[in-house]
Design a protein around this nucleic acid. Structure first.
Lengths: 223, 223
DNA sequence: TTTTGCTTTACGGTTTCCCGTAAATATTAG
DNA sequence: CTAATATTTACGGGAAACCGTAAAGCAAAA
């Protein structure tokens, strides 16, 4: 079992229960090992590393509430990247309210996280299973993750497509979109191309109107 | 201070930390006083009442994840109504991820809840302040609630307006909306009336297109 | 350079949306 | 019951969106 684990979680109440769960796994309890800000987390990782007693596991949330003073690192993924940059062998467990399997998969693929556990019913037990799996060198994806019905069509939007849809959602008339695309150096920017792209998106996602397309994108948190 | 408090919270980890916070306030710890389902919560309230030892305070979440077996009561507001129906003097504290002041205010006005605390930084301290305020007979609205910028324009949508906007978001062409409205016995259902209503909404909310209107409604969680 | 194939843009016809006005219907007052 | 008013619906012209096709632009290969 791990001896040295760092918790980065801004919500006081969840931070508490993480401590309790670690305690039940026999992991030593030290007030210095749970922090409420990403910046503090990175500092601890640096310090522990320089002292020759590095952390073995980082448990972090994905999103952190803004607060004063402004933090340099504002979310979990950025923290993970920064931490791995100075300590590549650090294991990472993400504990988040997010429960979409696609998000978890992307984190495993892109940031090579070792486990993803959503905040949900029986999440404390879930955490224990995840930590035990990591100890054994496995990657753990919680069975509580929800594979959404629209995930089959979980078409990956390009920057170009997101730009168009965002403009629509901001109230820009379709016929004016070329102007804004050109401003952002995105091409093709012709009105015909915009029309074709929107038409193609609607076909791909099986929606009938621009309105439904916007609703879909909002639901998928694409925009 | 309260002697008998019931916790209704489906997330295991948050349930744990609530117990810890209550303990720090000197409230007795009993495994029967924290439940993971609304139905269980109501049963406990009934039982305690019939035994002549009723709960003084209910701490509940707003939304509960679905689970098997299906529960009769599926969310916090419904639980609060049901509980107050059998025990009108029960104090209620809502502890939720929701942090919009408008939602909290509506709960205070409609369901007469006694406190609202959002899950956030320092939420454990916030909970203590809330409970102490309730003990003194006060209503507590957390200072961490966010008064959104669009809240000034937080125009209250009628069932009729939500129906129209929902149809649009479902991909129904504007010209077919009259048919669906008639099916739901909503009037006026003439196409002209629909056009006027949408036009009026866009003026009121200061948006330029149907697409932006849908985006606004999704952001405000109206649909 | 020319050819070939692909991407992007332009164009035109049709449909839908938008919006002002007028007609029809419902509601209320006298 | 009639008149007055408000609400709802119908209509029509103009703008925007939609969609297929053709032209133009561009890049790689001959």
């Amino acid at each position: 079992m791990f001896q040295k684990v760092l918790i980065a979680e801004d919500h006081e109440s969840i931070n508490f229960s993480l401590q309790k769960t670690l305690g039940e796994l026999g992991i030593a309890h030290d007030v210095k090992n749970y922090v409420y800000y990403c910046d503090d987390a990175l500092k601890r990782i640096e310090k522990a590393l320089s002292e020759g007693n590095p952390y073995e596991l980082l448990i972090t949330d994905l999103s952190f509430d803004d607060d004063f003073p402004q933090q340099k690192i504002k979310d979990g993924p950025t923290l993970i990247e920064a931490a791995r940059a100075i300590q590549p062998n650090l294991k990472v467990l993400v504990f988040s309210i997010e429960n979409r399997a696609s998000i978890a998969n992307n984190l495993v693929n892109d940031l090579k996280i070792n486990a993803f556990v959503p905040k949900a019913r029986r999440d404390a037990q879930d955490l224990k299973l995840a930590i035990e799996a990591i100890v054994k060198g496995k990657t753990y994806l919680s069975p509580n993750l929800k594979r959404l019905s629209n995930e089959q069509a979980s078409y990956s939007f390009s920057e170009y497509e997101i730009a168009i849809v965002s403009l629509l959602a901001d109230g820009v008339p379709q016929k004016n979109i070329p102007f804004y695309l050109q401003e952002k150096n995105l091409k093709p920017f012709g009105l015909s191309s915009v029309e074709k792209k929107l038409s193609g998106l609607k076909t791909t996602l099986n929606v009938q109107s621009n309105e439904q397309l916007i609703a879909y994108c909002k639901d998928s948190k694409l925009i």
